[in-house]
Design a protein around this nucleic acid. Structure first.
Length: 810
RNA sequence: GCCCAAGUGGCGGAAUUGGUAUACGCGCCAGCCUUAGGAGCUGGUGGAGCAAUCCUUGAGAGUUCGAGUCUCUCCUUGGGCACCA
């Protein structure tokens, strides 16, 4: 018997599949209503970032999983689109290029070639004819086009906002490069530097991004994380007058309005300058300067100790006209709720701490045990709801009702209104780096900011030698004068190009649309093709993208829907998430820990099929799990056994009843569980079948073996294909139809009946399937073992679950 | 603090959704084979006990004829958000 030699058979079949174009998705399948038209199925995985490190076995898990699903769906008759491409702009490549002295464009090519080789070694069934690359000008032309459309609809704008600035390296850092408030390169403390940035108005879509989640097949945790991130809260906006001005605050607890003892403004609040009393100017100035110097990190660290400074000024309570002191505190976020807070120390823990520190008064207005007039002595704020006290004509009302009535009263006085606040911020969409899509805009001294005209797209990223970040905070592109200096598209006068580039999320916003028509040079994609393929039926990706890429691309898709480019309002019908593969030591796989497992090594040692099956078997797909090479060996043993048993039994005629039943049960299991991504139990099912077949090989016929191979082919495609041909088949196993199972065969004419006494299992008996309760009862009571348990006790009740168990209560 | 998951053998994990807890794999033990094995094969393997039997799904209560699964309280771990007013 030929031994199982994956190193020999795998390249052979990979070549065969590719040459025969088995994975090509057909646009439109057949015309509508024509017989044989296949249903479309768009399966998508997050396209990889081709880093210099190459793929590790963690990347492979979702690839193997979706590949198995793609293969199965094709066999079940679907027209499957399973594409792949490269998300190649961005910092990691830029840093890699700087470190190794290789131009980013060269590094990208090199890395892509390496990734491609690695992926092809796994025998994944991607449609390579649709491959895309976000750094290809033919691709990013349309990324820039989308930007122009956003600009046209006022959803892109410029604003002065703080960025992370490393004073030592003199460069702006992305948030992920400044984790913990320290520069990733040199460790210096990161400062905030205000700079003009391009922003996208994602907040305009906040409600739709929440509401349209309904009806999508996303995991609950994904939905709730997005909803949380958007952070919608209903409340009241209240004006506190000060002379002819007013301070606007947002609160969700208007019922505590009579408990306000102070007003606290964020240090950046625009009114600060106007209202500080002369005698407090010095102390306020010092406080604000200190606050500015504090990094976000320090601000977080000081979470417990809130600080502030009195401005010396007072505003008026909107309903009582009382004088209310105005403070400044850096715990107030300037970007949320108007950058001002009404302080209610009795009913908010933060305010409680603040007023205790500065000896401010405290006024109880919510009583949890009304009508008991006595409220407990406070050692902390009471944040719950209750009945109002000391609140004038609102006394005795419950919180919820009081919020309504107080808001109404404020509305009457034009000092407040119902409002909604979001935590979601607009999206900072520019980077001062080289390796990204140029923002297609020109700055003209006469005409202002002018968009590049569509016919001049793409604005190509110039090939430059010095792509290191500049020390001025500007993009390195700003030094390329012959690229920067252009004629204004409007007036023809001298103007300058925008030198900022887009973040690496830009290309991934819409890449799944490009797969529908990846070579189109007239449009982002042919609308008919978009309509045929979209939405994506199934999108698998990492949880870490839930509030980034997944949210961003939903926003962009909705925008494209609004301008009639995208055919629906949501891009992804179903979302699943894979768990991370950790290294054997339980830590994240990382070059710096030296614990990365390279799939090349596993493929070389055990074969791609072993790697694929192990990836599926190692544990529940959506959970994090550690790599364990002993487990890989176990899978290798299993495939070896499956190989042997297939060749041993291939010449046998018909399987006996037990074997036939077992293979149909396995067939059923896979058909049911594949869609639920229960890969680990599916592989366990194969192992059980092979173990059973090994016990009685003479009873296993070629019918069962062939069925097993077809079932196995999505998971171990090379081995299944090879054995299929060894069994004498001239066609590819992937041209076979996905087999139907028969409930008739699965059903047995006897079943095991569990006997319980008082709910405890005491015995099992084999009985005819469909036995009546009366028969079962008689049979049970005649069992010797049962008799010893019952003895002379009285039988109170008998519970009979047909086909399962009988329970005798004594 | 808030939100979301999850706690089952020595380990990764199964359990048809309320019906034989520990499938499958790893590891371990014994035996066989081998010059040898970090190879292969066979058998065993939750705990206690000589045994019959008893105990066992983070802890405790509850519902039920019957609970890993449902309800409540608590504990622990992981993930996300976090001074969001």
């Amino acid at each position: 018997m030929e031994t199982y030699n994956p190193q020999e058979i795998e390249p052979k079949w990979q070549k065969y599949w590719e040459e025969n174009g088995f994975y090509k998705a057909e646009d439109f399948s057949l015309p509508r209503r024509q017989a044989g038209r296949k249903p479309k199925q768009y399966l998508l995985l997050e396209f990889p970032y081709p880093s210099g490190d190459g793929l590790h076995v963690g990347h492979c898990r979702p690839y193997c999983a979706l590949d198995a699903i793609a293969r199965q769906k094709r066999m079940a008759g679907a027209n499957v689109l399973f594409p792949i491409g490269w998300d190649a702009f961005g910092l990691p490549t830029e840093n890699y290029a700087i470190k190794h002295g290789i131009h980013p464009s060269i590094a990208t090519q090199k890395n892509i070639a390496n990734f491609k080789r690695q992926l092809k070694n796994l025998g994944l069934s991607f449609d390579w004819s649709r491959e895309i690359n976000t750094t290809d000008p033919k691709y990013y032309k349309w990324t820039q086009w989308i930007f122009l459309k956003l600009l046209e609809k006022d959803l892109a704008y410029q604003a002065e906002i703080p960025i992370n600035w490393c004073p030592a390296c003199k460069i702006g850092l992305a948030n992920e490069e400044a984790v913990g408030g320290a520069c990733e390169r040199c460790g210096a403390v990161v400062e905030r530097k205000v700079q003009k940035q391009w922003m996208l108005k994602i907040t305009a879509y906040a409600d739709r991004l929440i509401d349209d989640l309904e009806g999508l097949d996303f995991p609950e945790r994904v939905k709730s994380q997005q909803i949380n991130w958007i952070g919608k809260s209903f409340g009241t906006e209240i004006q506190f007058p000060i002379n002819n001005l007013s301070i606007s605050v947002f609160t969700t607890r208007a019922d505590t309005l009579f408990g306000v003892t102070a007003m606290v403004l964020a240090p950046e609040h625009p009114l600060v300058e106007k209202i500080v009393a002369p005698e407090n100017k010095e102390s306020v100035k010092k406080y604000i300067e200190d606050a500015k110097r504090k990094s976000d990190f320090e601000r977080e660290k000081l979470e417990k100790e809130k600080t502030g400074v009195f401005t010396g000024s007072f505003c008026r309570h909107p309903l009582t006209d009382e004088k209310i002191p105005i403070w400044i505190g850096d715990y107030v976020i300037s970007a949320y709720g108007g950058g001002a807070v009404m302080m209610v120390p009795a009913h908010d823990q933060r305010d409680f701490g603040f007023s205790k520190k500065y000896n401010l008064p405290l006024k109880i207005v919510i009583c949890p045990n009304y009508p008991e007039p006595v409220c407990p002595i406070l050692d902390k704020a009471y944040e719950g709801e209750g009945h109002l006290v000391s609140s004038g004509k609102f006394n005795g009302l419950k919180s919820a009702e009081a919020i309504k009535k107080i808001t109404k009263e404020l509305e009457k006085k034009k000092l407040g209104k119902e409002t909604i606040q979001y935590k979601l911020r607009d999206w900072v969409f520019s980077r001062q780096h080289y390796w990204g899509e140029p923002i297609p805009v020109v700055h003209c001294p006469k005409c202002g900011t002018v968009p590049v005209s569509e016919k001049d797209l793409p604005v190509e990223l110039p090939y430059i030698e010095k792509y290191q970040p500049s020390h001025t905070g500007e993009s390195p592109l700003s030094a390329i004068t012959d690229w920067v200096n252009v004629k204004c598209p409007t007036c023809g006068g001298p103007a300058k190009r925008e030198t900022d580039t887009m973040p690496n999320w830009a290309g991934s916003n819409w890449y799944f649309m490009r797969y529908c028509d990846s070579n189109n040079d007239k449009a982002l994609a042919d609308p008919k093709k978009l309509k045929y393929w979209l939405p994506v039926d199934w999108y698998n990706g990492g949880m870490e993208h839930t509030t980034l890429h997944l949210l961003y691309s939903r926003f962009i898709y909705k925008f494209l829907f609004d301008i009639k480019v995208a055919p629906q309002k949501e891009p992804y019908q179903k979302r699943t998430s894979h768990g991370v593969v950790l290294a054997g030591d339980g830590r994240k796989m990382s070059k710096s820990f030296g614990n990365v497992v390279n799939p090349d090594d596993i493929v070389q040692k055990y074969g791609a099929d072993t790697l694929r099956v192990y990836e599926m078997f190692m544990g529940p797909f959506d959970q994090a799990i550690s790599w364990n090479e002993d487990g890989v060996k176990g899978v290798a043993r299993f495939l070896e056994k499956a190989w042997k048993i297939s060749l041993t039994c291939a010449g046998n005629k018909q399987s006996n009843e037990d074997i036939l039943r077992a293979i149909h049960k396995l067939n059923k299991k896979i058909s049911e569980e594949l869609g639920q991504m229960k890969f680990n139990t599916i592989i366990a099912g194969f192992m059980e079948f092979v173990n059973l077949a090994q016990e009685k090989p003479t009873e296993v016929g070629s019918d069962a073996i062939e069925r097993m191979l077809i079932l196995l082919s999505p998971f171990a495609p090379h081995m299944a294909e090879d054995l299929w041909s060894r069994l004498g088949h001239k066609n590819s196993i992937f041209q076979e139809k996905w087999p139907e199972y028969s409930e008739e065969i699965i059903k047995k004419d006897t079943t095991i009946l569990v006997i319980q006494i008082n709910g405890k299992t005491r015995d099992t008996i084999e009985v005819k399937t469909g036995i009546s309760e009366k028969e079962a009862r008689e049979l049970t009571l005649s069992q010797k073992k049962v008799k010893t348990y019952i003895l002379d006790k009285e039988i109170k009740k008998v519970i009979f679950v047909p086909g399962k168990l009988i329970n005798i209560v004594v």
